[in-house]
Amino acid sequence: MAASLLLAAAVTVASFPAGAQTAAAEGQKLAFDRNKGNCLTCHEIKGGSQAGNIGPALADIKSKYPNRADLVAIVSDETRRNPLTVMPPFGRNHILTGTEIDAVVDFLQTL
């Protein structure tokens, strides 16, 4: 059983380029970090704990937002698209750098 799980994990990891794996892993750390991305305050995310329910559950993101630029724009400053949002403008307010936003988006696209 353990060998099967290890093999499945190895196949999954091997199916993504190393750079994408690293960026997505960094993005997950940022998204779950209560002092940085803090996504779990408002969103339910697979693998996260103590999730909020103010925002939608973050699942099936790549099919909901096939255009990566749309997702970057949402994380950077959702107020441009929806002035009434309660989502913080992570880019505009310098909560996350451009590189950090890219990593978070890489992570979100794995959900």
Results as ranks from 00 to 15, higher is better:
4 S>C: 12
5 L>C: 12
5 L>I: 15
7 L>G: 01
9 A>R: 14
10 A>H: 04
12 T>H: 13
13 V>C: 05
13 V>N: 08
15 S>P: 03
25 A>C: 01
25 A>F: 03
26 E>P: 00
27 G>M: 00
27 G>C: 00
30 L>F: 02
30 L>K: 01
31 A>H: 01
31 A>T: 02
32 F>T: 07
32 F>W: 11
32 F>R: 06
36 K>C: 07
38 N>S: 03
41 T>F: 12
41 T>E: 12
42 C>N: 09
43 H>N: 11
44 E>S: 14
44 E>W: 10
45 I>W: 05
46 K>C: 08
50 Q>M: 12
51 A>R: 02
56 P>V: 11
58 L>M: 10
59 A>V: 10
61 I>S: 04
62 K>S: 15
64 K>N: 12
65 Y>L: 05
66 P>T: 08
66 P>I: 07
67 N>I: 08
68 R>V: 00
68 R>N: 02
69 A>T: 05
70 D>R: 07
71 L>Q: 06
75 V>C: 05
79 T>H: 14
83 P>W: 08
83 P>L: 06
83 P>M: 03
83 P>G: 08
84 L>P: 09
85 T>E: 05
85 T>V: 10
90 F>R: 14
91 G>V: 03
91 G>E: 08
92 R>N: 11
92 R>D: 09
92 R>M: 08
94 H>P: 01
96 L>F: 05
98 G>Y: 03
98 G>Q: 13
100 E>S: 03
100 E>I: 02
100 E>C: 04
101 I>V: 08
101 I>W: 06
103 A>L: 05
104 V>I: 08
104 V>Y: 09
104 V>K: 05
105 V>P: 00
108 L>A: 07
109 Q>A: 02
